[in-house]
C-alpha cells in the first residue's frame, strides 16, 4: 500500500505516462494489491467528480450576452462566404443559381459583376474598377475614397467596410459603393477578393 510515489500513481491514472512507463507501471500493478487499490480509488474519485459536475453541462444554456447585440450574418454575407468557399471553378454556376433564387424570392436584389447592364447603378466600369482596385489595396476599412468620371459626369465613393480571410488564405473585402445618379445617391455593396497586387476580383455586388 506504500512505497510508491503517489505522483507516479496519479500520473498513471491521469494518462500522463508514456507507453513504456505505463507498461512498467502495469507490471508493478499486477503484483501489488495495495497499488491496485490506490489506482482504483483514484479512478473512482475521478469518475465521481465527473458525474457530480456533469449536471452543469445539461439543461438549457442561458443566451450569451456577449453575442446578444450581434446581428446574424445577413443572407448575402453567408452567400458570399459560401461562394468563396465553393472555389472559383464552381463559383459561376452556383452564383447564377443563387441569383435566380434571390430574384424569385423578391427580397432585395443581387447583381453579379458581369451582369452590369441589369444593375441598378450604372457603373463607368473602367474608372470604378481602377478606383476600387486602388482603394481596396491601400485603404483602411472605414475610409471613403471619391471618384469622378469626366466623360459621363458620374461621381461616387468607395468605402472598404471590413476585411476577412478565406480558408484558402485569400483576403477579401466587403465594400460600400455610392453613386450620384440623377441627383440621388444610390448605394450598393459588394465583396471582392484579392487575386494579385492591386488586382481585386469582385465576387458579388448587391443592393438592399
Amino acid at each position: 500500500m506504500k512505497g510508491y510515489d503517489d505522483g507516479l500513481v496519479m500520473a498513471y491514472v491521469d494518462g500522463e505516462l508514456d507507453g513504456r512507463e505505463s507498461a512498467e507501471f502495469e507490471k508493478l500493478l499486477q503484483q501489488d494489491t495495495g497499488l491496485q487499490q490506490q489506482v482504483r480509488r483514484l479512478r473512482e474519485m475521478n469518475a465521481a467528480l465527473g458525474v457530480a459536475f456533469n449536471e452543469a453541462m445539461h439543461g438549457e444554456m442561458p443566451p450569451l450576452r456577449a453575442f446578444a447585440g450581434r446581428r446574424q450574418p445577413p443572407w448575402w454575407e453567408r452567400l458570399s462566404d459560401w461562394l468563396v468557399d465553393a472555389g472559383s471553378a464552381r463559383w459561376q454556376p452556383m452564383a447564377t443559381a443563387a441569383l435566380v433564387l434571390v430574384v424569385a424570392s423578391g427580397g432585395g436584389g443581387y447583381l453579379l459583376s458581369q451582369g452590369g447592364e441589369s444593375a441598378a447603378v450604372v457603373s463607368p466600369a473602367v474608372v470604378v474598377d481602377a478606383t476600387l482596385n486602388h482603394t481596396l489595396e491601400t485603404q483602411m476599412s472605414g475610409t471613403t475614397v471619391e471618384w469622378q468620371d469626366e466623360q459621363t459626369g458620374l461621381a461616387g465613393t468607395i468605402t472598404p467596410v471590413r476585411t476577412f480571410k478565406t480558408e484558402q488564405g485569400k483576403f477579401c473585402r466587403e465594400f460600400l459603393e455610392r453613386q450620384l445618379i440623377k441627383e440621388q445617391w444610390q448605394e450598393q455593396r459588394g465583396i471582392a477578393c484579392r487575386e494579385g497586387k492591386e488586382e481585386w476580383q469582385v465576387r458579388a455586388r448587391y443592393y438592399l
Binding site: M57, M61, L64, V84, F164, T166
Partner: peptide, 18 residues
Amino acid sequence: MRDAKLEQAMVALQPKLR
C-alpha cells in the same frame, strides 16, 4: 468567415465552461 466559425466553436463550449 473564420470569425463566424470561431464564434460557433466558442458557443459550443458553453456547457463545458459552465
